[in-house]
Structures are given as C-alpha cells and as structure tokens.
Simulated assay, not measured.
Amino acid sequence: MKGIGYGLAALACMTVATPGWACTLCSCSASTTGIGFGGYDPGSSSPKDGSGSVTLSCTGLVSLAGTIEIAMSPGGSGNALSRQMSQGAASLLYNLYTNGSRTTIWGTGAAGTSTVSATLTGLLSFSQTVSVYGRIPAGQWVKAGPYADSVIVTITY
C-alpha cells in the first residue's frame, strides 16, 4: 500500500531596510508565490520538484549600480539545511534552492546556504521576479495528507 503525502512550502513576506546604499529614498516590498508540490509518492525513486517565485518592487531614486539581497529563513525546522513541512507531529523533508539544478540551498548565507542578489536596473521604479526551486527527496514514508511550512523572505536594500 502506498501513502500519498501532499507538500506545500508557503513563502511569507517581510521587508527589512538597511541604510540606503542601493536605493535612495526608496520603498521596497516583496510578494511571493508559494510552491505547490502536488501529490508525493513515497514509493517513487525520484524526488518531487516544484517552483515558486519572489517578486520585488521598489519605488524611489533607484541606484543603477546597487543590488538587493534576498534571504530565506529556515522555516519551522530551524535549520535551512534540513527544512521540514509538517502535518501535526508528522514531518516531510524538503528544501528550497537558488538554482534549477537544486544544488545551492537558499538561506541567510550562513551555515552552507546562499542568498540571491538582484541588480537594480531602473530609475524611479524597479521590479524583478526571482524563481525559487523546491525539492522533496524520494523515499520518505509519511502518512497521507497536507504538509506545510512557512518561510520568511527578507529583502535587504
């Protein structure tokens, strides 16, 4: 008998401003599209992949030479190298990556994780969408049902 688990990594949003080296008199915000993994088959030998996005929007005197850094919290597990979605006491391992080949874990830049930088490319307004890649490793025998986690996206500009 196969159990089917469903994974959803929710991305929550928070903006944090630092002294305006990248953007003068700016107001920036971010919106996210969560990752819906769909059905997960623990008997499959292949991981389950999904993707979402973070969209940055800034208005003000945008510097053409500046960058915005995007970091992600470890989620409910407290460890970005070993993120977990939960359903009650049950958990399902997953992770978030900066690249489509899913080799670089997206975190705060500490403990083996990386952040993503977006280059400011406009005057008065700037908008850019960055992809987030997720993966649930194969072979996790979990009870069926919805699994979820929340990750805080921090934008430094």
Score class of each variant (00 low, 15 high):
4 I>A: 14
7 G>C: 07
10 A>D: 14
11 L>F: 14
12 A>G: 11
16 V>N: 15
22 A>P: 12
23 C>A: 11
23 C>R: 07
24 T>N: 11
29 S>R: 10
29 S>D: 15
35 I>H: 06
38 G>H: 04
39 G>F: 03
40 Y>S: 14
40 Y>Q: 10
41 D>W: 04
41 D>A: 09
41 D>G: 03
42 P>V: 02
43 G>M: 12
47 P>L: 04
48 K>V: 11
50 G>Y: 10
51 S>I: 01
51 S>R: 12
55 T>E: 15
60 G>V: 03
62 V>K: 11
64 L>M: 10
70 I>A: 13
71 A>I: 06
74 P>A: 10
79 N>A: 05
81 L>V: 04
85 M>T: 03
90 A>H: 05
92 L>H: 05
93 L>G: 02
97 Y>N: 02
98 T>L: 02
100 G>C: 01
101 S>G: 12
105 I>V: 05
108 T>I: 00
109 G>C: 07
110 A>Q: 07
112 G>T: 03
114 S>M: 02
118 A>M: 04
118 A>H: 04
121 T>N: 14
122 G>T: 00
124 L>A: 08
131 S>A: 08
132 V>F: 08
144 A>P: 15
146 P>C: 06
147 Y>T: 08
148 A>K: 11
148 A>I: 07
149 D>S: 11
151 V>R: 10
